[in-house]
Simulated scan of single mutants.
Amino acid sequence: MKTLFRVAIDGPGGAGKSTIAKRVAKILNIIYIDTGAMYRAAAYKIKKEIPHISELDLNLINDSEEYKQIKEIIEKMDIDFKDGLIRVDGEIVEDKIRTPEISMLASGISKLPIVRIYLGDIQKKIASDNNVVMDGRDIGTNIIKDAELKIYLTASLKVRAKRRYDELKEKGKIENFNEILEDIRKRDFQDQARELNPLKKAEDAIELDTTNMNIEEVVNFIIREAEKIKRNKIN
């Protein structure tokens, strides 16, 4: 049986999960999977097919017309991470899925069982066959319950909003800081309140508040924990 080493990184929006997870995966020389990008990609595809939809429309009952449309879109959609770029049905969507609108819609569709189960099954299959660093909101509590290392990253709301603002600004997208702050606040509530696999810290996860930490400090902490676990396995 193949010996696996999986790192599950969970936490709210703007905590730095993707940036940290990418660097950790590179250092450990294992696969990085951005599950948040998968939900964003699904949200982008749904918005493209149903332009009028917003997160406010997603309190859907199973026999609604929109739910049927979403189910059909999800079941036909192809998502891949070839060359480190996320594609939906062959279209590179890396920059198109990072807007506040898509972020909120992603949080909304993540409440829908058809979306959560479909993408969750893909993620579980990847993690069952590979050494991975996987980040998201339910990785340690649902996707890789037996991950060798679980980290729960958090930071203050204002710091997380500032990080998201700076990220968008660096890409040439000028957004209103207060709107980003409110979007993250709303998404925190949605993610924590959803019925199916809500955002929460796994009981065996290490909680790390990154408010006053830089990227290198966080990466180094996680690498030290990973190496410690690897040494214990050998011994």
Score class of each variant (00 low, 15 high):
Leu157Phe: 08
Glu170His: 15
Ala193Met: 13
Lys186Val: 01
Phe189Lys: 14
Ala202Phe: 10
Lys158Ile: 04
Ile184Gly: 06
Leu153Trp: 09
Ile180Gly: 01
Glu182His: 06
Ile151Met: 07
Gln192Pro: 00
Lys171Phe: 08
Ser156Asp: 07
Asp166Gln: 11
Glu148Met: 07
Gln192Val: 00
Val159Glu: 15
Val159Tyr: 06
Asn197Gln: 13
Ala161Ile: 05
Gln190Asp: 03
Asn176Pro: 06
Asp183Pro: 02
Glu175Thr: 11
Leu196Arg: 12
Lys171Pro: 08
Thr154Val: 01
Asp204Gly: 07
Leu168Val: 07
Tyr165Gln: 09
Asn176Val: 13
Leu153Val: 00
Leu196Glu: 11
Leu196Val: 12
Ala202Glu: 10
Arg194Gly: 04
Arg160His: 01
Ala161Pro: 04
Glu203Cys: 05
Glu182Phe: 02
Glu203Gly: 03
Glu148Pro: 06
Asp183Trp: 04
Ala193Ile: 04
Val159Arg: 15
Val159Asn: 10
Leu199Pro: 07
Glu167Tyr: 12
Pro198Cys: 07
Lys186His: 05
Asp166His: 08
Lys162Asp: 00
Lys150Arg: 10
Asp146Tyr: 14
Arg185Ile: 01
Lys169His: 12
Asp183Val: 10
Lys186Ser: 02
Asn197Tyr: 14
Asn197Cys: 14
Arg163Met: 04
Glu170Ser: 15
Asn176Trp: 13
Leu199Trp: 14
Glu179Val: 08
Tyr165Glu: 06
Asn197Met: 12
Asn197His: 13
Asn178Lys: 13
Asp166Cys: 06
Gln192Ala: 00
Lys150Ile: 02
Phe189Cys: 02
Arg194Thr: 04
Glu167His: 09
Ala147Phe: 07
Arg185Lys: 15
Ile151Asn: 04
Asn178Gln: 14
Phe189Ser: 01
Lys150Thr: 03
Pro198Ile: 02
Leu168Ser: 10
Gln190Trp: 01
Lys150Tyr: 10
Asp183Ala: 15
Gln190Ser: 09
Glu195Ile: 13
Ala202Thr: 03
Lys200Met: 09
Leu168Asn: 13
Glu182Pro: 08
Leu149His: 11
Pro198Ser: 07
Thr154Trp: 00
Asp166Leu: 13
Lys200Gly: 01
Lys171Thr: 02
Ala147Asp: 05
Arg185Phe: 09
Ser156Pro: 03
Ala161Phe: 12
Asp146Glu: 12
Leu168Thr: 06
Arg187Trp: 07
Glu203Asp: 13
Arg163Asn: 00
Lys201Asn: 05
Asp191Ala: 08
Lys158Arg: 12
Ile184Cys: 10
Leu157Gly: 00
Ala155Arg: 03
Lys150Cys: 02
Lys186Pro: 05
Asn176Asp: 15
Lys169Asn: 14
Lys162Ile: 02
Lys201Leu: 10
Lys173Pro: 01
Leu199Cys: 05
Ala155Gly: 01
Asn176Met: 13
Lys200Glu: 02
Glu179Ser: 11
Glu167Asp: 15
Ile151His: 09
Asp146Val: 07
Lys200Trp: 01
Asp166Pro: 09
Leu153Ile: 00
Thr154Asn: 02
Asp146Ala: 06
Ile174Glu: 14
Ala202Cys: 08
Glu170Cys: 08
Gln190Asn: 08
Arg185Pro: 02
Ser156Cys: 00
Ala155Asp: 06
Lys150Trp: 11
Asp183His: 11
Arg187Met: 03
Tyr152Lys: 07
Asp204Cys: 08
Lys201Pro: 02
Ala147Met: 08
Val159Cys: 10
Asn176Gly: 03
Asn197Glu: 11
Glu167Pro: 11
Glu170Tyr: 15
Asp183Met: 09
Lys169Glu: 14
Lys186Phe: 04
Arg160Met: 01
Arg163Cys: 03
Val159Pro: 03
